[in-house]
Design a protein around this nucleic acid. Structure first.
Length: 1131
RNA sequence: GCGCGCUUAGCUCAGUGGUAGAGCGCUUGCUUCACACGCAAGAAGUCACAGGUUCGAACCCUGUAGCGCGCACCA
């Protein structure tokens, strides 16, 4: 047993034990050890950004994870806490570019070029990217560092590519030119989730334009963005707005640019609000999402007047070109004012979308991006338990899980909420590891739980309104999109003319009748064998009967119905590829692919022609027409037929939720044709170039739970540790990360990624602001650790972070943690100073009432802490530990033991044994919260001795988590309520005595004499304890016949009357006043109880237990009052 | 606009229908042989407001106000 220093010095202790744990491999998880008796427990860390440094948010988050992991270890589980970092595309590239610019190594990234910059970032990553993980060690995190992962590790990157390819092949990834959120600083597209709305003070400008057809009639228009006027291509009014509806179809002249004041059509659109501004909307399809959609409905031109960096381009006119968008706004207002068009300006506050990273207003911009239609949405939606379900349904979650994995555990069926069965994974989903080793981590049909449950509703809402995800980023740092384009083959950049049919050209309802009709139609008009001149190539293409029949037999009715349009289709089809014919046939020199479009009623079809070129330049249109998609109405109110929509490259429609196939995506689809584009991990070979964009960082993060465990190999780690047990993260990334991981989990693992999700609090400063570097209101956790110790920081954070509420950070909390550690330290020190062996047995016969009381309190604490942790109520658990240890163990028990410890009786050894028993249990309960100080004390108090190495003998890490004491235990040691009552009565008597001392201004260090006139005999031991706790130099027990001097201060205690005889003058009047106050208080309480009991209906309606309790209270107060009055009379 | 959460001691927050709680801060006394990062005692609350349900409301219901958050968004 080593000497324990007077104060706890965390720094040395922390390093010592962390190194020890690492050296001993305590944190290393081994799937081979997992079995029924040793279930797996796993957490994957939310990977911090490599640019990150430890914040209080990480402290909160990781302490919780560490508590969960350490407790799981103590519960005998095989624990994997998997650490790692995220490459954080935009953030990291920003940081490194800034560093390079500062160091003068470059002015712009283009100077370095892609390869060199990425190399620089890698260099930076190797140097600084692991800092935050190092810092987590200082906090005591028990991560399995041998499994540290990074989202750009080669294996991980391969997973990302593979997933992209998989989704591409499933048809869920598409490319399109659409309105995206564009960050003019980072020069990249952002997902909707990366845009934060901020209330912004702006100005609403009103300007007027004259209606050309009605000279003298003026329209007034309100806008916040006058700089976009040169991009306007229409004015819109609500067709039901009587003020303006007559003007629809007329024109007004655009005020800017001055050199090109084009006439703008006035269109009617139902989305225009009557009551905002003037009810007239200027339509700028290139720079506003809503305007873009209006433009779609009305076939408006799109004039992009900005460069990617939001500087106006030449289309904005010579006045504005070259100006930044905000400069241009001012200039545009001046121009309007000078021309007399400006009517008024008024201040206006509105919400403006800002780039999360760069914190500048985003610019809606038409650009070509990759989009993902989320997979496994339905499963992901269904698997999260609906909010509002009572936790009581399944109070002990871990028991619940333990039951579930127990062989033949039928309780599972009984306990599980079966409200919604989870659909089976799609049969074509790849690589299901779930089938590999059934049993251990089988979760099918189980529901995932969110804590607090209300986040499930937020999740549900987002999932119900899920929008396609823009996954491409115009950055260099990240996973490059695994799409390859063939060089030398031209992309489709020409418009394809749509051939229109009414659908009534052919007779017949059934497909059979239609076929006959179509064939007849072709024969009648001499189509078969005829050659058609193609406008795109000038080649002639012939039609064969065999190809028609082939097409009819293999494809749908539209394929038959389009036959009357064949002459036109062949004339307007566009050649998109020339390929060698396979297998090589001597008579065929090449195959040409043509694409055409046909509209039949409201449906639009793409038609693909495969044309064989025979030597001698004879072209024969062969057998394939291919129905690809149909146009659907995109927006309510968009009642224009598709022919109104222009078809051209570089033009896109937002797809309707149920059908992404629109005319506008035609070009994108064509370009995505394998003839031009291949989606695969490695290059297809010479002549192919990779897409320059990288993937959104979250497109790699969403694979984290399984890509870190060796997927797509069927590893033992995956088999044992997936799905993970708990995820601990902030609610702010519920969409970014959590929801996406759930979908990915189902899609590629066929199972949920985690069973429970705990959403941490958000830490705020005392003013309620979020902690942020720029505000400078975030304390550095490392400073706090240096100042107070890691345990103190952990405990202070946990004690103040309740489930489901934001938490205000206050260094006072850390101080509290430090004080608690010191208290623990000193209690242990007190124990050690008593000497004696720690392994002595407890003799039940020698147990005092205080011994029994503290063991029962310990039992309650074990239950309380365990239950709280089961329900993720970490602050409650910390609170319970604090209360038990400080207010019960130290304040009462330890103080009381001084009575027996000072003597050298046989009771002394027994008291020490009880103390050791309680301390050894307490250290274990505290260990998840305070890993360092508990390990140090565990070892220095010698509690590790005599324990098997894997059960606490080597380290407290694997000591068993204390179980509540069972009935046998309590019987053996004779623990029952009467002892508790006696101890509590004693405490009450002590409180009364101390209050007496205080009331008569007796310094707490002054020893005085007390007299106790007890109701019942008081054993010598109890009297000795009373004496110690009252700091009395003498406690005299007197019998009932004894009467005090008149005016002697006295208190009524549960043990009897306690007197404080005062030397010198006795102030009877003062004592009378004191007693009177006490009597008044009791009378008040008695009155309250009696009033209740007297209430008519109380006795009839109230439950018997409550009634009995009130009656008891009544008699107790009455008795007390009587006694107090007797004391008063005796004065 | 829709949704969610909060409002309890000076501060930060616990408290799911039956005697209002903790930590910090404050006041007073104490270096009593584990601990002044401590010990002991104390003051301090119309439980946001207004109705309702109930024998009984901080707690359940309705409404109001204030604060915070999320989603959507009208130029």
């Amino acid at each position: 047993m080593s000497e324990i220093a007077k104060t706890y010095e965390p720094a040395a202790v922390e390093v010592k034990w962390y190194d020890f744990w690492l050296r001993e491999g305590c944190f290393t998880a081994d799937p081979a050890r997992v079995c029924e008796r040793r279930p797996a427990y796993s957490i994957v860390i939310p990977p911090p950004n490599i640019t990150g440094v430890l914040t209080l948010g990480h402290v909160l988050n990781c302490t919780i994870q560490d508590i969960l992991a350490r407790r799981a270890r103590m519960l005998g589980k095989e624990v994997l806490w998997l650490p790692g970092t995220d490459h954080a595309g935009i953030a990291t590239q920003n940081v490194v570019e800034r560093t390079l610019r500062k160091a003068g190594e470059m002015k712009h990234r283009d100077e370095l070029g892609r390869e060199a910059l990425v190399a620089k970032i890698w260099e930076w990553k190797e140097k600084y990217g692991g800092i935050i993980l190092q810092q987590l060690r200082a906090l005591g995190c028990s991560c399995d560092w041998t499994r540290t992962r990074f989202t750009m590790d080669p294996e991980y990157s391969r997973c990302v590519s593979q997933v992209f390819v998989d989704l591409y092949k499933k048809g869920l990834i598409y490319r399109g030119k659409r309105m995206v959120n564009w960050c003019p600083v980072a020069l990249t597209a952002l997902s909707d989730e990366e845009v934060v709305m901020k209330p912004t003070n702006g100005t609403l400008y009103y300007f007027k334009v004259e209606v050309i057809e009605q000279p003298g009639a003026w329209l007034s228009i309100a806008t916040t963005r006058p700089e976009t006027i040169p991009g306007d291509t229409a004015l819109a009014v609500n067709p039901k707005d009587s003020r303006y509806s007559a003007l629809i179809g007329m024109h007004a002249r655009r005020p800017l640019p001055l050199e090109d004041r084009a006439p703008l059509p006035i269109v009617g659109d139902a989305t225009v609000a009557f009551d905002f501004g003037t009810g007239v909307l200027k339509v700028t399809p290139a720079h506003d999402k809503a305007d873009f959609e209006i433009g779609q409905r009305h076939g408006l031109a799109v004039i992009d007047i900005m460069q990617p960096n939001a500087v106006m381009n030449e289309l904005a006119g010579h006045d504005l070109a070259g100006l930044d968008r905000f400069e241009a706004r001012k200039r545009a207002v001046e121009l309007l004012r000078e021309s007399g068009a400006l009517e008024k300006e008024e201040p206006y506050q509105h919400n403006v979308g800002h780039s999360e990273r760069a914190d500048v207003p985003i610019e809606p911009r038409l650009s070509e991006q990759w989009f993902l239609k989320y997979p496994s949405v339905e499963q992901a939606r269904a698997c999260v338990e609906k909010a509002g379900k009572e936790l009581a349904d399944c109070t002990d979650l871990r028991d619940h899980q333990a039951k579930k994995i127990a062989p033949g555990g039928k309780s599972l069926e009984a306990n599980l909420p079966k409200e919604k069965s989870v659909t089976q994974p799609a049969p074509d989903a790849t690589l299901h590891v779930r089938d590999l080793l059934g049993g251990v981590n089988e979760t099918l049909g189980e529901q995932m739980r969110f804590f607090p449950s209300r986040w499930a509703r937020v999740y549900e809402r987002w999932m119900a309104n899920i929008q396609d995800w823009c996954i491409s980023r115009q950055l260099w740092w990240g996973h490059r999109i695994p799409v390859w384009t063939s060089e030398g083959r031209s992309k489709l950049d020409r418009p394809i003319q749509v051939v229109r049919l009414t659908g009534d050209e052919l007779a017949g309802g059934s497909i059979r009748e239609l076929r006959a009709s179509a064939l007849g139609w072709a024969q009648e008009r001499g189509l078969i064998g005829q050659e058609f001149f193609n406008l795109d190539t000038g080649n002639s293409i012939a039609v064969r009967q065999a190809s028609l029949q082939h097409a009819f037999s293999n494809f749908g009715t539209a394929n038959v119905k389009l036959v009357p349009g064949l002459p036109e289709l062949l004339r307007h089809a566009v050649r998109v590829a020339i390929l060698p014919h396979e297998p090589l046939a001597p008579e065929i020199s090449a195959v040409e692919i043509y694409l055409g479009a046909v509209q039949i009623k409201a449906q639009l079809f793409r038609v693909k022609f495969v044309v064989k070129v025979f030597h001698g330049n004879f072209r024969l249109y062969d057998h394939q027409t291919l129905l690809l998609w149909e146009e659907k109405k995109v927006e309510p109110g968009g009642d224009k037929s598709p022919e109104e929509a222009r078809l051209s490259a570089g033009f896109a429609l937002r797809p309707a939720p149920d059908s992404a196939r629109t005319l506008g995506t035609f070009a994108g689809e064509v370009n995505a044709d394998p003839l031009f584009t291949r989606c695969q991990i490695d290059s297809p070979g010479e002549g192919w170039t990779q897409d320059p964009d990288v993937l959104d960082t979250w497109f790699s993060s969403w694979l984290w739970p399984f890509a870190t465990m060796g997927w797509p190999e069927k590893t033992a780690t995956l088999a044992k540790f997936y799905p993970t047990s708990d995820l601990v993260t902030g609610p702010d990334i519920i969409f970014f990360w959590v929801a996406r991981m759930i979908m990915a989990g189902f899609e590629w693992m066929g199972d949920m990624p985690f069973r429970n999700v705990y959403f941490t609090s958000i830490i705020r400063d005392r003013q309620g602001r979020k902690l942020s570097k720029s505000l400078g209101n975030s304390a550095d956790p490392l400073d706090l650790i240096a100042k107070y110790g890691a345990d103190a920081l952990r405990f202070g954070t946990m004690r103040s972070a309740p489930l489901g509420q934001d938490v205000t950070f206050d260094e006072k909390n850390v101080e509290l943690g430090r004080n608690f550690c010191t208290k623990l330290w000193n209690a242990a020190r007190f124990r050690q100073m008593q000497g004696g062996e720690s392994e002595s047995e407890i003799a039940p016969a020698l147990l005092t009432s205080d011994d029994k009381w503290i063991v029962l309190r310990l039992d309650a604490a074990i239950r309380e802490v365990s239950t709280a942790l089961d329900e993720y109520r970490f602050s409650d658990a910390a609170q319970a530990l604090y209360r038990f240890f400080w207010s019960e163990f130290c304040d009462w028990y330890l103080e009381g033991t001084k009575a027996t410890l000072s003597s050298l009786t046989g009771a002394r050894a027994n008291t020490l044994a009880v103390m050791d028993f309680v301390l050894a249990h307490t250290l274990r309960l505290m260990h998840p919260f305070l890993p360092f100080v508990t390990e140090e004390l565990w070892q220095s108090l010698g509690f590790h001795r005599d324990l098997p190495a894997d059960q606490g003998g080597r380290t407290i890490l694997f000591a068993h988590w204390p179980a509540p004491f069972d009935a046998d235990f309590k019987t053996h040691y004779g623990l029952d309520e009467s002892d508790e009552r006696l101890a509590e009565a004693k405490h009450e008597a002590v409180n009364q005595g101390r209050a007496l001392r205080r009331d008569f201004n007796i310094a707490s260090n002054k020893r005085v004499r007390f007299l106790l006139r007890p109701h019942a005999p008081v054993p010598a031991y109890e009297a000795a304890v009373l004496k110690i706790l009252l700091n009395a130099d003498w406690l005299e027990l007197v019998d009932a016949s004894w009467t005090p001097l008149k005016g002697t201060p006295a208190a009524l205690t549960p043990l009897g009357e306690l007197f404080l005889p005062l030397e010198g003058l006795i102030d009877a009047e003062a004592e009378r006043a004191r007693l009177q106050k006490e009597i008044a208080k009791v009378e008040d309480e008695l009155g309250k109880v009696r009033a209740k009991l007297a209430n008519p209906g109380f006795a009839e309606k109230v439950p018997p237990a409550v009634l009995g309790e009130h009656r008891k209270r009544d008699t107790a107060w009455a008795e007390k009052l009587a006694q107090l009055q007797r004391m008063m009379d005796a004065l």
